[in-house]
Write a protein that binds this DNA or RNA. Structure first.
Lengths: 331, 331
DNA sequence: TTGAAAGCGCTAACAT
DNA sequence: ATGTTAGCGCTTTCAA
């Protein structure tokens, strides 16, 4: 077995409670004693067991991070930032992949609940009511969803979508399609609404979907796009947009010559795709950091769960113009 | 506080040890009792505390997963597969990002050690000796590194690199560069050695690097490539290869017209980049799955740590020919 | 300032 | 087949 607090106590010739104090309330020890204990601990290579500590204190110093799809390039920078932030605050991160499935997502929250101080739900697919219920059990912070009383970091997609559509209108497009994301996505409904509202009388909007937000779905929707005769499409995310571009390409339709395409997220892929994808920049790393801080702040609050003060942060977006958008063809 | 084993015991009118058995050794209970307990647990929404369980059993049912860089597209599919596999075995996954830094990586192992049953090191940057030392403390499984007595899953980059170089030789290239990865990478040294050996008398090989395996580094090395006058380059990974392609492009050098480029990994990026990148396919998801299974198998072994039987798995690679390779220019 | 003792939620002998 | 009891490694009153 590994070295425990008892071993250190013996080595330092003190009681185990003194060793405990040396780590959790060092100021309440005589400097001399503290040094002796810490010295002994160092010699033995002692590290307090977080498991045992969690059992008494009720705090695990762990956070659960649940995402819809780890492989979606939107998430990794966010996970990375969250992990770094958590570690800086002396927390460890559990990662879990919900596979875009609300049921799995909810089950993951329950499965992790006893082992974490809080859970971050990224792009949750669960219904609001369910989220509210879960958050009675365990502190939850949301990314890309806003629910009253629950801390959340959202991205200003309303602004993003508005700017994207205006960009299209300015180029002269009159028939626009929105390639929709998953039905359960809050972000998706925000965008859809904004697209319609912004286009107003200036352009017709066709909504295509819902779609699973990956390349294949984009590929599949391309044919439908060609049939609708739109000259521009905004997609729920870069993955879909890139799929659409590939699909269009294989249909012999030129981007942006015949059809303009805009994505959302500005993942690595946007810069790499050809034509390079015009897209909405979303500060994912900031979102990861903010989510961790919001959650920790919320859990630190010692009020009853459910009566705590939940912070909300909204992150700005901006249009990144590249090569996938142009004026509509003359014909 | 949440509902505990005592609450269930009271509700089901049995002793807590009976409740415990209902979950961990259900067959040793009279079916009738078992049902009554499980029913009570369900009514109260009881879940055993893994923390408390870990304290008595010594098994946390957690795995630590340490990668060099979460944002490197090579890792997410691996993390995803590992997480799914772990969950299927009733394990949860801690994720940690070592930022390509050996010191952080080692520290992470220590930090997680008390909280996990084992750690998976992906593309470790730590020295072998240090890994061996760490593995005395906590079971470790390796991805992309082979150390005696430690379970590992490696990728047959030797074969991959050989095939890549042969492809280049077949096209008629006589001057080849290898854009090297991080110095501490085992994979990198494997590749470098193979490149030189395979080129043999048929082509000269220039090694450029070591480099941090990201796009920027690739971009930076492009100028050096142009100076060496090579007509083909193999890069340590897709990220570097893509950086090289971009750098070459901005130098007015055509890929593959003037210089051929081959990457390694076959990440999403390879298919998306223009020209589409010829690369070596690496089964990352399989690696994630295999690593988890190897580790669990190793930890299940009840021999002394250090005397257990370590499994090794080698995963095949293959060349994916796309548009970034062609015969050298005539001049 | 330090020690003693109880207890966090659970499992694992041991007893019945 | 089920109950009793001790104890996992630590924190936290309470005493001294």
């Amino acid at each position: 077995m590994a070295v425990t607090i008892k071993d250190v106590a013996r080595e330092a010739q003190v009681h185990m409670s003194t060793v405990s104090r040396a780590f959790s309330m060092p100021h309440r020890l005589r400097p001399e004693t503290r040094t002796r204990v810490l010295e002994a601990a160092r010699r033995l290579g002692y590290r307090p067991s977080r498991v045992a500590r969690a059992l008494t204190t009720g705090r695990t110093h762990n956070i659960g991070f649940i995402v819809a799809d780890i492989a979606n390039p939107f998430f990794p920078p966010m996970i990375k930032a969250a992990e770094h932030t958590a570690r800086a605050r002396d927390y460890h991160l559990f990662i879990a992949d919900a596979s875009e499935d609300p049921a799995i997502e909810a089950e993951l929250v329950d499965a992790l609940a006893k082992q974490v101080d809080g859970v971050i739900l990224c792009g949750p697919r669960i219904a609001n009511a369910k989220i509210e219920r879960l958050s009675q059990t365990i502190p939850i912070a949301l990314v890309n969803r806003k629910v009253d009383g629950i801390p959340s970091v959202t991205i200003d997609v309303v602004h993003g979508a508005r700017v994207a559509i205006r960009h299209l209108l300015d180029l002269g497009h009159k028939k626009i399609a929105y390639v929709s994301g998953p039905r359960q996505s809050w972000t998706n409904s925000q965008i859809r609404r904004t697209v319609t509202a912004t286009a107003g009388g200036q352009a017709t909007v066709t909504v295509l979907g819902p779609n699973t937000p990956n390349e294949d779905a984009g590929l599949a929707v391309a044919e439908e796009i060609s049939r609708t005769g739109v000259t521009a499409v905004l997609a729920y995310n870069d993955l879909l947009a890139i799929g659409v571009m590939e699909g269009l390409h294989s249909l012999g339709i030129d981007v942006p010559g015949d059809v303009s395409v805009i994505g959302i997220d500005d993942t690595v892929l946007a810069r790499l795709a050809r034509p390079r994808l015009t897209t909405i920049l979303v500060p994912t790393a900031d979102a990861g950091t903010a989510a961790v801080d919001l959650l920790l702040q919320y859990t630190a609050d010692d009020a009853e769960l459910g009566t705590r003060s939940a912070g909300h942060i909204s992150l700005p977006t901006k249009l990144v113009t590249r090569d996938s958008t142009a004026p509509p063809p003359r014909s």
